[in-house]
Amino acid sequence: MTWRMPAETARHERTWMAFPREGLTLGEHPAEREEGYSAWAAVAHAVAAFEPVTVVVDPSEVERARRMLGGDIEILVAEVDEFWMRDHGPTFVVDDDRPGVLGAVDWIFNGWGAPAWSQWQKSAEHARIVAGEVGAELVSSLLVNEGGGIHVDGEGTVLATETVQLDPRRNPLADKARVEAEFARTLGTTKTIWLPRGLTRDYDDFGTNGHVDIVATIPSPGTLLLHEQRNPRHPDHEIARELRELLADQTDAAGRRFEIIDLPAPDAILDRDGYVDWSYVNHLVVNGGIIACGFGEPEADARAREILEAVYPGRRAVTVDSRPIFARGGGIHCITQQQPAVAR
């Protein structure tokens, strides 16, 4: 069998999320925790306006989830510790030789390199649980990886980052050839484009060590959407420039040189913890729409929506305030996972 991960722009059956539960990531104080719950719920409701949403909810949070999510969003009760579904949940794939067959890649998840603060053992089971719920064939993998660490074009190209898949805390024995071979087996890719690193903030204690889904994505084959930090005071200004130069020389699996479209960051460059990694690249494409990150800057948010609607023709961009999500280590793409539609 040959598995292939479809592009995010392919038709979805639904989007999967995990509902937050109390713990270090959510916040120490009641107001902080409420902010986190509200942010996740806002994303779920935004997605549900375009396609079905199922949220995995810890037994301790069912009452709150039912109250905040309402009846339009389906709830699946299972134990949760981390609640970043893109990373600990399944990566869905299809088999073009077997129409109607859905696969679910079960990467090894160790909490982004087993940092002392992360609790991942419960959510590491979500790929198996979700696969069973939707009747997908489980595609087991020995690679420590997260869904936010990859982006595909659905036609053989995958973006990855050297500091993620080759992270010694994740895969101490891996090299590029081994990782690329596993991508080929599980995702159906034939060309891996390696970014040397990610954004500055992503290397803090609560970061992922360079996830690509905050840096670049492939809105259509042959096109790259790249985070642009225009302020030279921000260390990501130079990082983004270097990545652009590197990617300008790359070709995709079909041999096409990329058209690179810059997606400027908002104007704010600092918060109480240092340089922000606020990025509009971390959006979710849904059926007929785009769920875009918002950062409380009307002009910058509107500019991002305009660019996103241009690169995804026929889709309407909707902004959700993502500052509470980024404060906890990621964005909208990080907390969602699309399930592609397959012929029945």
Rank of each mutant, 00 (worst) to 15 (best):
M5Y: 09
P6I: 04
P6S: 03
P6N: 08
A10P: 01
R11W: 01
T15C: 10
W16D: 12
F19N: 05
F19P: 01
E22A: 15
T25N: 04
T25I: 14
E28I: 08
E32R: 00
G36W: 08
S38W: 08
W40T: 04
A42W: 09
H45G: 01
A48V: 11
F50S: 14
P52Q: 08
V53K: 02
V55G: 05
V55S: 04
V56Q: 03
L69K: 04
E79F: 01
W84M: 10
W84V: 09
D87Y: 03
H88T: 12
G89D: 07
D97N: 05
R98V: 12
G100H: 02
G100I: 00
D106Q: 13
I108F: 13
W112D: 06
G113L: 05
G113H: 08
P115F: 06
W117F: 15
W120V: 00
W120D: 09
W120P: 00
S123E: 03
A124E: 02
H126Y: 00
A127N: 10
I129C: 03
I129Q: 02
V134L: 05
V134K: 06
E137Q: 14
E137T: 14
L138G: 00
V139L: 05
V139H: 11
S141T: 00
L142V: 11
G147Y: 05
G147L: 08
V152P: 04
G154Q: 11
G154I: 12
A160N: 06
T161F: 05
L173F: 10
R178I: 15
T189I: 12
T189S: 11
T190C: 04
I193C: 06
P196Y: 08
L199R: 04
T200V: 14
R201Y: 10
D204S: 15
F206Y: 09
F206Q: 11
G210C: 02
H211F: 05
I214K: 05
A216G: 09
T217Q: 01
T217A: 09
I218G: 01
I218D: 01
G222K: 01
Q229F: 08
R230F: 13
E238P: 00
A240W: 06
A240F: 12
R241P: 02
R241D: 10
R244N: 14
R244S: 12
E245I: 07
L246A: 12
L247G: 05
L247D: 02
Q250Y: 06
T251K: 11
I261L: 13
D262Y: 01
P266S: 11
D267Q: 13
A268L: 13
I269E: 07
L270A: 08
L270I: 02
D273I: 13
D273K: 12
G274Q: 00
G274R: 02
Y280N: 05
N282L: 05
L284V: 15
N287G: 03
G288M: 07
I290C: 06
G296S: 09
P298M: 09
D301S: 03
E306T: 13
E309D: 10
P313E: 09
R315C: 14
A317D: 07
G329W: 09
I332R: 05
C334T: 07
Q338S: 13
P340L: 07
